[in-house]
Design a binder for these strands. Structure first.
Lengths: 354, 354
DNA sequence: GCGCCGGTTGTGATCGCTAACATATTCGCT
DNA sequence: AGCGAATATGTTAGCGATCACAACCGGCGC
């Protein structure tokens, strides 16, 4: 008799008994339109050589059944998942969040999906793990928003199997990368303060291990050295306003300090707060400059002079680079660098005449 | 005699003549381990009834080849993509970004991938589009972080095909939802100001169309009415500090205003700035309360009294609810509600004795 | 010694799609 | 008309996994 397990076919017309309403598949559309499944596939993929009448019939059938192609089946045969991965460290921060946003938008216009993986910690094993996860999912490429120096090593190991692009600070590794010129930005900020007449500029750095921290720190030091000025000891925070506040309390009563360049705006906010509590006027007694130009910076007390960084653009560019890589345009080896732009507001002013 | 070399497989010699290094598939592992592909599958999926010796051989082969199962193939046959979708409006904002983060973390521990889709605009067509996109990708469920009132309608339409959970403000629709009790939070904030002796409390609302805006507005009004107090006209912004600043300039010179409840912290920041510029002391002349308790709020000038909202937790809970729904525990119809918690800092103080 | 049983492994079929090739059908031009 | 080149459409064979079922194995009871 009829063995079990092969009645799948026919089910013409009204779905009778089956309570389950099976999702329509390509064959269903084909039958309804009176063509072969291949023709349906052609219509779906915009292949040439389909008579317009036929195309219309197929389209109508698709609409009628509300048919949607099964992406897994397609991915299986084409070996393309139409998915890109993003690994990011703390997507709660304004920077990473904006980059993610930029990436997603760009990916969508290129007709890719975006899958995210955040890291729990910033050691290289964790990065490796996230990348692996994404790879297992079958992403075609990966953007890494995790500018830890330690991450770079882990990254270069996998890049052979799946294209990887990093975004953030410039690295000295050989990995395709879109970055903001943090050094130049830091130099500009520091020079600005020097030009304002400050004897030297103090620096509140970001956490160790981040490429941004390192580059901004380097830029600051460079500017001081170029000016032949004393390089004071640096403090460092973890990007948070809280850490900026703590650093601020430590330096607030140091008469030596007349200008501080903070590695990001949030820490600058905390610093501003501490200075205010200590009764030190900004910019009257102390000038402060931040980095990033988050949307709130203009509303700080006082409005923050800072270095603008267009995170969205950074994300977009990173995706662009990744897509090129996917298209085989790789090995051009041209890292994209975006230049800094200072935003002058009120937190930095001339040094008081001794 | 018959040695260890059974008659099974002429094994060996993965002669890679071709330059192409094909990714290993299950059959390769099977051959190397001297078993059938099905046994490999069993090992991979932890099926019972596999002799431990066999399992070891398979595992070794997997390691040797660095084999990774093809997720598309698996998804095709199991009809499960192990992927969840998140649609969010502006993942640049602190709230959405944190929720996304919470969702991703929770999803990962449940062994799901997360695919994101941001909206360009907040009309319902756009929401529909994003959900469709995700659906086409084959996600098993969707979390919507897009608390626009208009979105709800669009959402309820698709929920039949794929489980959808919304997160954010409470809605009056019948959709599973994890929400923060915005009304209660707004009431508490308003009452706090009233208790401080203010005759009434002004409100700077969020943009129209957002459920958060509506609920916080409702809570504020409720508190005023309960106190039998005049309900002043409301202003409204778009969540940004800029819009708070603009609103602030309008009300700064109105002597009637002694207390303002802002629908979020960013707008409160802008308001604070405008007040400061106008020379009005906070909380001396005007008290201000925000909403969200973003990490920076403690460092505003003055530190902001606000209503705390744990976005990460919200995201986690939303995912939990979605997973339940996927597991078929649905129809419990118990929306999760998280209660408000006021954070008292320095921006709100007693009304001046008339 | 036979049959039954449960643990272990192998053999097809199948998921829904696209690629490659085979087969009509139409058209243009001598 | 006629014949080859396009232009349309259909047929078959996988992609790489899981699932259902069959086959094998050794031990046990009678």
């Amino acid at each position: 008799m009829i063995g079990p397990g092969h009645q799948r076919g026919l089910c013409v017309g009204v779905e009778a008994v089956g309570t389950e309403v099976r999702q329509p598949v390509m064959a269903d559309v084909a039958k309804l339109a009176g063509v072969s499944h291949q023709t349906v596939s052609r219509v779906l993929n915009g292949a040439p050589h389909v008579r317009s009448g036929t195309r219309e019939r197929v389209l109508a059938a698709i609409r009628e059944l509300d048919y949607r192609p099964n992406s897994a089946a397609r991915a299986l045969v084409t070996r393309r998942s139409q998915t890109l991965g993003v690994v990011s460290f703390d997507s709660t921060l304004y920077g990473p969040a904006s980059m993610l946003d930029g990436i997603e938008r760009a990916a969508r216009t290129a007709d890719y999906f975006v899958s995210v993986a955040s890291l729990r910690s910033l050691d290289s094993r964790s990065v490796q793990e996230a990348v692996d996860r994404l790879r297992d999912q079958g992403v075609e490429g990966i953007v890494v928003i995790a500018p830890q120096i330690s991450a770079v090593g882990a990254l270069s190991r996998v890049s052979s199997s799946v294209p990887v692009v990093a975004v953030g600070a410039g690295s000295r590794s050989r990995m395709p990368m879109v970055s903001f010129d943090n050094r130049a930005g830091a130099e500009a900020a520091t020079r600005h303060l020097l030009d304002l007449g400050h004897r030297t500029v103090h620096h509140l750095a970001g956490p160790a291990g981040w490429m941004e921290s390192r580059d901004r720190h380097d830029g600051w030091r460079q500017a001081l050295e170029d000016a032949g000025v004393r390089v004071p000891p640096v403090g460092s925070g973890d990007w948070s306003a809280r850490s900026g506040y703590q650093a601020g309390r430590r330096i607030a009563h140091d008469p030596e300090v007349t200008a501080v360049f903070c590695a990001n705006d949030h820490m600058a906010l905390g610093l501003l707060r501490a200075l205010h509590e200590a009764g030190r006027a900004v910019p009257g007694e102390i000038s402060v400059i931040g980095f990033d130009d988050i949307p709130e910076a203009a509303y700080f007390a006082p409005p923050l002079t800072t270095v603008r960084q267009d995170f969205g653009e950074l994300g977009r560019r990173a995706l662009e680079l990744l897509l090129q890589e996917l298209a085989g345009v790789s090995h051009t080896r041209d890292d994209v660098q975006i230049s800094p732009e200072m935003v002058l507001r009120r937190s930095a002013g001339p040094a008081r005449r001794g």
